[in-house]
C-alpha cells in the first residue's frame, strides 16, 4: 500500500459550494435582519417612576394618612379630656362668680333663656305658684 502524502498530492479542495447569487442575497437578508434586530432600534426608555407616578402618589398619600391616624386620634382625645378637666377646675376654682358674671359670659344668640329673677317680687312669685294648680305635683315628683 502506497502511503498517502498530503503535500505530494494535488491540493484537495473542500468541495463546498453555495447557492446561486448567495452572497448578493446574503447582504440583503442581513441588512433586513439588522434593521429588525431589537438592539439596533432606538430603545424607548420608559421611566418606571414616571409610568407609576400616579400609583406612587396614591400609595404615598395613603401611607401619610395611615401614619397620621394615631397622632390625630391622640390629639383629639387629649383635647377632649382637657376641655372637661378645664371646665371642671374652672367651675371649682371660679365658683365665686356671681349671677351677673355668668350671664355676661353667655353669648346673646345662644338659646339659653335667662330669667331675670332679680326683678321678680316675692308677692308676684307667690301669685304665680298659687295660680298654677300643677305645681304641687311637680314639687312632689322632683
Amino acid at each position: 500500500m502506497t502511503p498517502f502524502k498530503l503535500d505530494s498530492e494535488p491540493k484537495i479542495e473542500s468541495g463546498f459550494k453555495t447557492p446561486d447569487n448567495y452572497f448578493e442575497n446574503f447582504q440583503t437578508a442581513l441588512i433586513e435582519r439588522l434593521d429588525n434586530e431589537p438592539s439596533n432600534k432606538e430603545t424607548k426608555v420608559i421611566s418606571i417612576f414616571r409610568k407609576r407616578k400616579t400609583v406612587l402618589f396614591a400609595v404615598a398619600a395613603v401611607l401619610a394618612l395611615a401614619l397620621m391616624i394615631p397622632a390625630v386620634y391622640q390629639s383629639y382625645s387629649k383635647s377632649k379630656d382637657l376641655d372637661a378637666a378645664t371646665i371642671e377646675s374652672y367651675l371649682t376654682e371660679e365658683g365665686h362668680l356671681n349671677q351677673d358674671e355668668i350671664i355676661s359670659e353667655i353669648e346673646p344668640e345662644s338659646n339659653i333663656i335667662i330669667l331675670d329673677t332679680k326683678e321678680i317680687e316675692t308677692q308676684t312669685l307667690e301669685d304665680m305658684l298659687a295660680s298654677n294648680p300643677n305645681i304641687e305635683n311637680l314639687v312632689i315628683e322632683n
Binding site: F16, K17, T18, P19, F26, L30, L34, S39, N40
Partner: peptide
C-alpha cells in the same frame, strides 16, 4: 468568512445561520 465557518460547521444552512450571527455581532 463563509468558507471559514463552512469548514467548521460543514452544512450550508448552518454556515448561513452562523455567518449572519457573525455579522450581526460584528455590527453590534
Amino acid at each position: 468568512l463563509y468558507n471559514h465557518v463552512r469548514n467548521i460547521v460543514l452544512s450550508h444552512d448552518d454556515a448561513d445561520d452562523v455567518l449572519q450571527n457573525t455579522f450581526v455581532k460584528v455590527f453590534q
